[in-house]
């Protein structure tokens, strides 16, 4: 068994690879921001909503966490198309990823919210803070700081999972790679390169989260102790 690697055959495609990396980053960034917003709202709803709201959110979270991402993507892309609404592959990809990561975010942030002692809420209430102010200043900020490592892992995972959206030919790194390997017939080399690129992307995402954490969590930066 001998296989002669020929990475040079991929050299003419470096622009495509670079574009793929950029598209994956964009896709993941949008899905991260929207997914975080959705998940956090759901976490608040689950912690503080009416029984009806809680039940709806609980169902959403359980359904998403117990079905494959690929099926969710197909459901969004093809399912909604049969309703006569045509979504672009990229829009469907982002929508599916947001819905998916929103459910996981909800559970993580909820754990953070539950870690905030009731006495903290009482103190905020007695100082006259409104509910929204209490949520923002007293609950969410420390809650998110506490679960930040878990959130980081989740969003790295999201970035890696975005490769699945190549199945509906969304524009991202894996879809680009699929195209290149069918052009060059150099699948082994192509996926090695793509693997290395994803590894690098993971590092970038982790570094990005670390940097954001340093800016956002001042106490943590100064004291270095967990909340």
């Amino acid at each position: 068994m001998s296989y002669r690697f020929d990475f040079l055959a991929l050299l003419p495609y470096w622009r495509e690879f670079a574009l793929g990396v950029w598209l994956t980053l964009q896709l993941s960034a949008v899905a991260t921001v929207l997914g975080f917003a959705l998940g956090t709202l759901c976490a608040i709803g689950r912690a503080d909503g009416s029984p009806w709201v809680r039940a709806v959110i609980a169902t959403y979270v359980e359904v998403i966490r117990n079905t494959p991402l690929l099926v969710q993507i197909f459901l969004v892309y093809f399912g909604i198309a049969t309703l006569g609404i045509h979504l672009s592959a990229n829009f469907a990809a982002v929508a599916a990823l947001v819905v998916n990561v929103g459910a996981y975010t909800c559970e993580i942030v909820r754990a953070g919210i539950e870690s905030i002692h009731k006495a903290q809420l009482e103190a905020a209430e007695c100082l006259g803070l409104s509910r929204v102010q209490t949520y923002w200043h007293v609950i969410l900020r420390p809650a998110i700081e506490r679960v930040y490592p878990a959130l980081t892992s989740q969003y790295v995972l999201l970035m890696l999972a975005s490769s699945i959206t190549s199945q509906i030919s969304a524009e991202e790194l894996t879809a680009v790679a699929n195209r290149i390997q069918s052009d060059t017939f150099r699948s082994f080399e192509t996926y090695i390169v793509v693997g290395v690129l994803y590894l690098a992307l993971s590092m970038v995402v982790r570094l990005g989260f670390m940097g954001f954490g340093l800016v956002a969590f001042v106490r943590r930066r100064k004291l270095g102790t967990p909340l």
Partner: peptide, 17 residues
């Protein structure tokens, strides 16, 4: 609550501030 302040046994300061 604008007129009444309260201090608790367990201080209840906000730890991140």
């Amino acid at each position: 609550r604008r007129d009444v302040g309260i201090v608790f046994q367990s201080y209840n300061l906000f730890p991140h501030l």
